[in-house]
Design a protein around this nucleic acid. Structure first.
Length: 893
RNA sequence: GGGCGCGUAGCUCAACGGUAGAGCAUCUGCUUUACACGCAGAGGGUUCAGGGUUCAAAUCCUUGCGCGCCCACCA
């Protein structure tokens, strides 16, 4: 008997909460999250993922948990495969989002606005808030088991990133790619800032379409108040009704207290003659489309709405009113003058801020833009062209592939990128102005104006669009620009960039992924990453988006204590596909918790029943059919799971492993191992097979469920010399095309299942052993060799295996392949019932045989179908016919 | 207006051209010395509908219906 000390003490049920934090601490302390510190770390081939930096607005949600689970899976897999696996953590300052959040908090607590506090004080508050969020985020990332290199942590608003952003902007300025201009921008009245086109959301609403008497015409509009800023009216040039008017002008008077307007009639193909009256009142200052018409036709621009959402002096008597107030007042005045012809109802889209849902006012404003269409000096291509090429030429591969089309469509239609935001929290734009409004763009605060030499300069008060800084994330986290020496990459940048995979949600393909490609191809002349893996959104059981207002948000930190991190990770990875939304709910996680416990108990059984706990890395010799079977299955599963993971098919790989671990290893092999270990001749070899299977199963599962596997590994290899973490063990090897598992085992399974089925059918008490006769023909020897297995798993008493024989009297029968199984259940078999059961079986078989015969009689089939398929059908027919014969014989007796 | 995805057992999803599978749920049994977070057995499907291609279709093509999403934005 082994010494007691060698037997691990194992709890009956796995308790994740007791082991996870301790294991994480040990991993972290080991230093292996840093690829340089791995054994032979410097010699390994790099594999890099940068963490999409979570917004510093607060806590991580289940979407972040999905991201962490998938990325950690890839990192752990590659680490075990011998790569220098680097995963870079960080957080995003998320300018607008964070500023809004802190503003709200201060408003609630202190009833103060950011203006009450002033820029400096407000920013101090934001920074304090961010520090707290970062701590929370770090803890949550650790809780998920992320093997991420904390020594390389970055923040989008820290000094190195700040230097990088300034460098980028200056380079673009020097290349003539940035300009400051008056353009119609999406203006959020609440944030008092511009928004990029993709930061605007559209919501369907019911609106009124007013038909106004508009000089000699009728013009339809949903925004009457903007008509105070019209400078033209546009018609489709092909519209016969207005053709002769094009080019002419007229005076338009909206009544007392307004300034008369001079309106020119212009032609534009964008006008739909079928909508409204076929005429559009052109308001260049408050519509992007109208602005373009104004540029083409050199129209004057009258701004009537201000940055505060109130009407300007140009709106005459309506000045000072909010947009809505002005609309009501103006409509009332028009009605009084009889200038409203009719009002129709229609549904249109209201544009709103993606951060605070406030209605967007398009208005002209002086902003900084990045020109995406201008050729870059020395490159001969525009930013847009470079970004398209990166994906078109295969430098960047997007998974799932259909998102490549989405990317192309978006990129092809990209307009100049407004990068300035009237937000306090962010990277200040490195532009300075003198009293004469000359602009100086520089890397450091200049001493004097670059144009006139004046010494009093003020820096632009605006900050950058948050995506302008996060767009540089892959290379700034690796040391750019400092790591560039003599135009060449050095250090981490050289070793780890381009990164290998960018894993993120498809919802930020445009916001972030596209911007990273744009910024990186520009700055480094290389792609930021080779593969983009897009995960889907996580939804609740009913398929709804998770949101605070619905109260259906699943907080990873709530479920981790309940089910364990491994279970949570499995529930987010299995049953999902890239780019497809996934549903998660409590019971699903509980199901995977059950599986972690299953794995624990499989291990518990193996570790407590072997004579000595030890590693068994080499494939042991197989002494029995079951040994051969489980070893073959293990190798096949290893090969298949590896192939799936290489193809980013994480769910199929996991399902394969799950079925293998649970059904094949636990339900079949472990039960047989119990029998084999009773036999002194088989005991040692069976232990080897068990330990070998366990060792490999732990390795295969480790990227999915790092905690429980590492905990068991500790018990398995804890005493071994040179004991290492499972985390850095090497991935199991398998032949590319492993030998198939022996078919004879499947026959055994079928026989056992058939006996169990009859027992259940006739309600034989589970504990009761019954006699059985198996007439097995050529398979008799095989079954005799494995009689102990059948006897135990099917609970038989006297098991008679014959090559040839008669059916015993009053027996219940079943046919499996060419084999007859008879259970003489004396006194228990109701022969009428047995007959009915067999008749039913016979009818089924006859139908099936008929189908196969018809198939084979069809010349079209035998001529056209592949030989193997036809052969298979023939073999099947022969087998089923044999079975049918036996059933008929059983019925006849 | 343009594009994409999905519709398979009550639920969540597999099978992607050759007899429709799994987990959960349901039903029937069971303290079988690893696990009741378990074991054994069972029931449950005109694969949304119609048409086509094929010897063969859940799988390919086509039309329609239903659900979801993205882009554009209409004054």
């Amino acid at each position: 008997m082994p010494k007691r000390a060698e037997k691990p003490e194992l709890a009956k049920a796995y308790d994740a909460s007791k082991v996870e934090d301790g294991i994480y601490r040990r991993w972290e302390k080991s230093g292996y999250f840093d690829p340089d510190k791995l054994p032979n770390g410097k010699k390994r081939t790099p594999f890099t993922i940068v963490l999409p930096p979570p917004n510093a607005t607060g806590v991580l949600h289940v979407g972040h948990a999905t991201m962490l689970a998938i990325e950690d899976l890839m990192i752990r897999y590659k680490r075990m495969r011998g790569f220098a696996a680097l995963w870079v953590p960080g957080t995003d300052h998320a300018s607008i989002a964070t500023q809004n959040k802190v503003e709200k908090l201060i408003q609630e607590k202190e009833k103060k606005s950011r203006h009450d506090l002033g820029r400096k004080e407000f920013l101090k508050r934001v920074e304090a808030f961010v520090k707290g969020s970062q701590d929370t985020i770090r803890n949550q990332v650790r809780k998920m088991g992320s093997s991420i290199d904390w020594s390389r942590e970055a923040y989008t608003l820290d000094a190195p990133r700040s230097e990088a952003v300034i460098e980028m902007f200056n380079r673009m300025y020097e290349d003539g790619l940035v300009y400051r201009g008056e353009r119609v921008v999406n203006w959020c009245v609440r944030c008092t800032s511009t928004l990029a086109d993709d930061e605007v959301e559209y919501k369907e609403q019911n609106a009124k379409l007013y038909f106004l008497k508009y000089g000699p015409f009728s013009v339809a509009t949903t925004r009457p108040e903007t008509k105070l800023g019209d400078t033209a009216v546009a018609a489709n040039p092909s519209d016969e009704r207005y053709k002769e008017w094009i080019g002419k002008s007229f005076e338009l008077d909206w009544g007392k207290g307004t300034k008369p307007l001079t309106i020119r009639v212009i032609g534009d193909h964008e006008v739909d003659p079928k909508f409204g009256s076929g005429l559009v009142g052109v308001t260049p200052a408050h519509s992007a489309v109208d602005f373009r018409m104004a540029e083409k036709n050199k129209l004057p621009i009258i701004k009537v709405i201000g940055e505060d959402g109130r009407m300007l002096e140009t709106a005459g008597k309506y000045a000072g009113m909010t947009v809505l107030e002005a609309r009501h007042a103006f409509v009332k005045d028009l009605e009084a003058q009889g200038l409203i012809e009719k009002v129709e109802e229609l549904t249109n889209n209201l544009s709103a801020c993606y951060r605070c849902s406030t209605a967007i006012e398009p208005l002209t404003s002086l902003q900084w833009f990045v020109d995406v269409n201008k050729k870059i000096p020395g490159r001969g291509k525009s930013l847009k062209e470079l970004s398209l090429e990166a994906v078109k030429r295969g430098g960047v591969k997007i998974i799932p592939e259909r998102f490549e089309k989405v990317y192309f469509h978006w990129m092809e239609n990209l307009r100049d990128w407004c990068v300035s935001r009237q937000i306090w929290f962010g990277h200040r734009i490195p532009a300075w102005y003198c009293a004469d409004r000359h602009v100086t763009v520089a890397r450091k605060a200049p001493k004097k104006c670059g144009q006139c030499g004046k010494k009093e300069l003020t820096q632009d008060g605006d900050t950058f669009d948050t995506w302008f800084s996060s767009g540089t994330w892959t290379f700034t986290t690796l040391g750019w620009p400092k790591a560039m020496k003599g135009g060449k990459k050095t250090g981490d940048l050289k070793r780890f960039h381009p990164t290998s995979v960018l894993e993120t949600g498809y919802d930020i393909l445009f916001f972030w992924v596209a911007r990273m490609i744009l910024m990186t191809t520009y700055a480094l002349k290389e792609v930021p990453f080779k593969t983009v893996y897009l995960h889907g959104l996580v939804r609740d059981e009913q398929g709804r988006k998770m949101s605070k207002s619905l109260g259906n948000v699943l907080d990873p930190l709530d479920v981790i204590p309940k089910y364990g991190t491994d279970a949570v990770r499995l529930s987010l990875v299995l049953g999902t596909a890239p780019g497809a939304d996934a549903k998660v709910w409590d019971e699903k996680i509980a199901g995977y918790r059950n599986f972690t416990n299953k794995l624990w108990n499989v291990s518990r059984f193996i570790l407590t029943s072997v004579s000595k706990v030890r590693r068994e890395p080499k494939k042991p010799p197989a002494k029995t059919l079951a040994d051969r079977w489980i070893l073959a299955r293990l190798e096949a599963v290893t090969a298949q799971a590896s192939a799936h993971i290489e193809r980013y098919e994480f769910s199929p790989a996991g399902e394969l492993l799950r079925d293998f671990s649970w059904t094949e290893l636990a339900d079949w092999y472990l039960e047989i191992a119990k029998i084999q270990m009773q036999d002194p001749k088989l005991r040692a070899s069976t232990e080897k097979v068990l330990l070998h299977a366990l060792e490999n199963v732990l390795k295969l599962w480790h990227p999915y469920m790092p905690f429980v596997t590492e905990a068991i590994w500790d018990l398995l290899a804890g005493n071994a010399k040179g004991k290492k973490f499972l985390m850095i063990e090497s991935w199991p090897k398998a032949a590319k095309k492993p030998a198939p598992a022996p078919k004879e085992f499947a026959l055994m399974q079928d026989i056992i299942a058939a006996i169990r089925n009859i027992r259940s059918e006739y309600k034989v008490e589970p504990a009761k052993r019954v006699d059985a006769t198996i007439v097995a023909g050529l398979k008799a020897k095989l079954l005799k060799d494995n009689a102990a297995v059948i006897r135990t798993l099917a609970r038989t008493e006297n098991l008679t295996i014959l090559a040839k024989g008669e059916k015993p009297k009053d027996a219940a029968s079943a046919m499996v392949g060419g084999i007859e199984i008879h259970l003489p259940l004396a006194g228990m078999v109701d022969m009428a019932k047995e007959r009915a059961r067999l008749e039913k079986e016979k009818a089924n078989l006859e139908g099936f045989v008929k189908g196969l015969e018809a198939k084979l009689a069809n010349k079209g089939y035998t001529d056209n179908a592949p030989k193997e398929v036809v052969e298979k059908t023939r073999a099947m027919l022969a087998e089923k016919k044999e079975e049918l014969k036996k059933i008929e014989a059983a019925l006849g007796s």
